[in-house]
Design a protein around this nucleic acid. Structure first.
Length: 394
DNA sequence: TTGGAGTCAATAGG
DNA sequence: CCTATTGACTCCAA
């Protein structure tokens, strides 16, 4: 008995009823997003004990998000299937989200119930023997629809067709391209003229400045934010958003490092794609420099990480055996569930995908703590009713 | 209110 | 076309 188990990151599986996600945004005619409260997307398994994904997510065993995304990327590229199609029809997410998810999956134990959903869907999809076939069919259908649409609009063409209307496919029949009315109506200024929000694009220098500010103070006070905003000539909300996003993305980078480190030591050494070298990298954005994002408490670092993440120690190139859906033959409907809930099914090449056992300790706990230290400090300061904290030596 | 988690969706490159 | 990046938004919990 090497270690005393337990200490797993307990996930309070509280009852989180399905929440209606009534997006205020205009349902763009992008595609059938016919979401129903219960099951937004057509689950791969029609009659699977009538479990909603939410339920499946709740009961799902720990999944190896890294292995899953790797496999998904492989299958998609091997078959020339795009993220958009996959995302919209399988995950119910947009292309950008899929790209992000596939490129930087957060470790399972750090995901919220909601965040796990896409991974459960991916796992389910991978387990479907006809997944590729089905997606390709959809692709064909889309193309067909596109051709038809194009054909009919060419008619005589009054010159440019521009149209590019995306509407169609599954006819939603609720053509309201009205550019919603933003809740903002404060000053009686303009309001009708195409609220097109230009989408702020921060200049490299601005990002630089913000990053510098971040290093000094990851959690700037409202006052500081105001100052930054005026100095950089940005809206306060933009600065606020930037900090939210930056913190969040930095955090995610740490997760990635964590995973790679674990993978590297846990099993077969194989630095994954991209960077890994060992040090922080500039990521999150093109501009280099800095790199010590998240600055200070970095010091202590002693990853004695014996195998961290359960199953990620091995890669398997293959490109063949579709997926290790347990017991290929027997049990027509047990396999998938089993593979998801990691019930029996022991070995299996990619046991990573199932891993009933809770791995002892989450070694990189230190990193996590370091990453959140700022947050704690912030709260402490707040509690102490102090504002500009300045330096806190440790 | 504030911050985190997830996403969306515009947009920059291929 | 496709994918990656990233400012802004929605939800939620503390």
């Amino acid at each position: 008995a090497p270690e005393s188990p337990l200490s797993s990151a307990e996930e309070s599986v509280k009852s989180q009823q399905e929440e209606q996600m009534c997006r205020s945004s205009v349902q763009e005619p992008s595609e059938a997003s016919e979401s129903q409260p219960g099951t937004p997307l057509p689950l791969p398994l029609p009659g699977q004990a009538g479990l909603s994904i939410q339920e499946m997510v709740a009961m799902s065993a720990e999944l190896d998000t890294y292995v899953i995304t790797k496999k998904v990327k492989e299958v998609l590229t091997d078959n020339n299937l795009g993220q958009r199609l996959f995302g919209e029809s399988i995950l119910g997410l947009t292309q950008g989200s899929v790209s992000d998810l596939l490129a930087r999956p957060k470790p399972w134990h750090k995901l919220s119930l909601k965040g796990r959903e896409p991974f459960v869907r991916m796992q389910l999809w991978l387990s479907d023997p006809r997944n590729v076939e089905k997606l390709m069919d959809m692709k064909r259908m889309e193309k067909k629809a596109y051709m038809k649409r194009r054909h009919s609009s060419i008619g005589e063409s009054h010159s440019l067709e521009s149209g590019l209307s995306a509407a169609d496919l599954t006819q939603g029949a609720s053509p309201q391209h009205l550019s919603q009315q933003p809740p903002q109506q404060m000053q009686p200024q303009q309001q009708q003229p195409q609220l097109k929000k230009p989408r702020v694009v921060l200049a490299p220098e601005e990002k630089e400045a913000l990053k510098r500010a971040y290093q000094q103070k990851p959690y700037p006070s409202p006052k500081t934010i105001e100052e930054l905003a005026s100095q950089l000539n940005l809206k306060t909300s933009t600065v606020i958003n930037w900090f939210h996003n930056y913190r969040s993305r930095i955090r995610r980078e740490l997760f990635i490092e964590e995973i790679q480190a674990a993978a590297g030591e846990g099993g077969s050494p194989s630095a994954r794609p991209g960077k890994s070298g060992g040090e922080g990298e500039n990521s999150c954005d093109g501009t280099e420099s800095d790199s010590t994002a998240e600055g200070r408490p970095s010091g202590s670092e002693e990853r004695k990480g014996f195998l961290e993440s359960p199953g990620l120690g091995h890669r398997e190139e293959d490109g063949e055996g579709e997926f290790p859906s347990a017991s290929g033959t027997s049990r027509p409907r047990g396999g998938i569930i089993d593979s998801l809930f990691g019930i029996p099914e022991s070995i299996s090449v990619t046991n990573a995908a199932t891993t009933p056992c809770r791995n002892p300790k989450d070694s990189s706990l230190r990193k996590k703590k370091a990453a959140n230290l700022n947050n704690i400090i912030h709260r402490l300061e707040k509690a102490a009713n102090r504002d500009e904290p300045h330096e806190w030596e440790f």
